[in-house]
Nucleic acid binder design. Sequence first.
DNA 1: AAGTTGACTATTT
DNA 2: AAAATAGCCAACT
Length: 120
Amino acid sequence: MTASPTYARIWAVVAAIPRGRVATYGQVAALAGLPGRARQAGYALHALPNDADDVPWHRVINARGEVSPRAEPGWEGLQRAMLIAEGVDFDDRGRVDLGRYRWEPGTLHGSAKREAQRRR
DNA sequence: AAGTTGACTATTT
DNA sequence: AAAATAGCCAACT
């Protein structure tokens, strides 16, 4: 497949998002070594092949904590359903509490993990 | 090769 | 608080 190294980096970061957590496009881009290139993160996911099960694209949302609207309808509802299935809650306006579900990479280790788990 | 596009975001109505 | 505006930059045509 003809994937740019840029895409590969972004996909790698997305693949690292733990279950039940979400990340913003800007966050993914920054972690991929592309600060300020949030749009490219979204572009990379758009170009993502359908059989890429190892990339949890549904855990990437926009900075407002909402599922980004895309060209084809129906996907938004699906993404929301998938996140709910993982334990991510949405409020009445269909938004995720980023302060609670935002993924903090590399932070949880050993006993610190248990402490982070206590948030609620 | 130049112009358009977009699964974004911060700022301003 | 929600909607429109402006800035952004790589991929796509």
